[in-house]
Design a protein around this nucleic acid. Structure first.
Lengths: 232, 232
DNA sequence: CCATCGCCAAGAGCAGTGCTCTCGGAAGTT
DNA sequence: AACTTCCGAGAGCACTGCTCTTGGCGATGG
């Protein structure tokens, strides 16, 4: 029957859920390299080989955690954006920046798994691509809507973008239609700038140098907003 | 005698050198997590326990590689800067940016060890601090000398930096005397921006999105130079 | 209702890891 | 020549990811 089969499937799904939950807890305390299938099995009162019924390899478990992580940061970013007045574009940008940083500080090991050095030998499967673009889509929407509302006027400090990046810009424009190549390039600049400063804070480059990190971050993001020409 | 003692010391130093060389080769091919003391020992025809006479733990070997890595990128940056006319500040900035990116692309695993996710449980000892600031010192010098030469005029796009970061700015000013808090904040922005884009390129965030990476990088760095007000 | 098939936990086992300990020999010191 | 120090070798511990086999339990089909 379908019912019984779904019962089987249900307990299976629940076990998978429990495995990822325990794995995420381990990831949070030990870090990615300390994630051990055997330890997860021990925590569940199972034998290590049983785990392999649900995750064929450690990398598959990592993939599940990565997908969860991208979705978590994506959701946090979407919520932060949604909580802002639609026409406060600078506010929306700052809100999503704070959301990213706060989530990163709260889940440093998960963040490192997403945006840090890739695990050697690990090739991100296609399943991770879609969740990985959730936050980026929000950024793109903010820029696109600000542009459409006429609230985007980039100050003329940048040189003209080279023609070589026109093709890439065309692809990126899927996220933010109608903006110029110059704006696309600036968007990439502030996008990488956001994650660059979060990386430096989390990965230790600010140690012994910068102490008022929240204030610096806030100011930095405001400057990047001004750099791309967000007004208000 | 001193001579014999130094003979002992010399063969010891040579062995340490050989260990780090082999370890660096392994790091380049396998990545940090694939670095194995036993494999290094095998490559040297030693038994694994003998390695511990020279490096008390795997982390100590990692530390040696990290120090070497910081010095390598520091030297590359210094050379790139030194090859430029002293008063071509924009050119110097772009040259060091390219040097960082080229080195990162040539030594991805070493770069990841320096600027990627920290190895869990690994605490960078004080020995790594000084080498880690070699590249930063070059950046600071470029900004400072441009300011002194009157060739630094930041466009007025940024809000005023908050007073909270004044203390940090004072510390950073050791690298670039006499500049304003605003310039310090912008310097941090372009500094994190440089490594942010290199991180994204190396760690896979540009995959399936950006193909003309050298051109985008070049343009991006030129924009950051304009952002901090480098003229010429 | 019974036989069958498929899923799954358990255990043993392999090859590898970091690291510790002991032992014996060689090199340097007095 | 005796002694101390250093160092390589080997065995061993606890751990890892992963594979294979075994046996049982539950769902399925006749």
């Amino acid at each position: 029957m379908n019912a019984s089969r779904t019962a089987r499937e249900r307990v299976r799904a629940e076990l998978i859920q429990e495995i990822t939950t325990i794995a995420r807890r381990q990831l949070a305390t030990e870090g990615a390299s300390g994630l051990s299938l055997r330890a997860v099995a021990r925590d569940m009162g199972m034998v290590s080989s049983a785990i392999y019924r649900y995750f064929p390899s450690r990398d598959d478990l990592l993939t599940a955690l990565i997908v969860d992580g991208y979705n978590a940061v994506g959701e946090v970013v979407e919520r932060a954006d949604a909580a802002c007045p639609r026409d406060d574009f600078t506010g929306r940008w700052l809100a999503v920046c704070r959301a990213v940083r706060d989530w990163a500080l709260a889940h440093p090991h998960e963040y490192a798994l997403l945006y840090g050095s890739p695990v050697p030998g690990y090739q991100a499967p296609v399943d991770t691509i879609a969740p990985a673009t959730r936050d980026t889509a929000v950024f793109g929407a903010i820029i696109a809507e600000a542009h459409r509302a006429g609230r985007l006027s980039p100050p003329p400090v940048c040189p003209e973008p080279p023609v070589a990046i026109a093709a890439d810009a065309e692809a990126v424009r899927a996220l933010m239609p109608d903006v110029s190549d110059d704006v696309v390039a600036r968007a990439i600049t502030i996008w990488t700038g956001l994650y660059g400063i979060v990386n430096f804070e989390l990965f230790g480059q600010f140690d012994n140098v910068i102490t008022h990190r929240a204030e610096l971050f806030e100011h930095n993001m405001a400057c990047l907003a001004a750099f791309i020409g967000l007004t208000g």
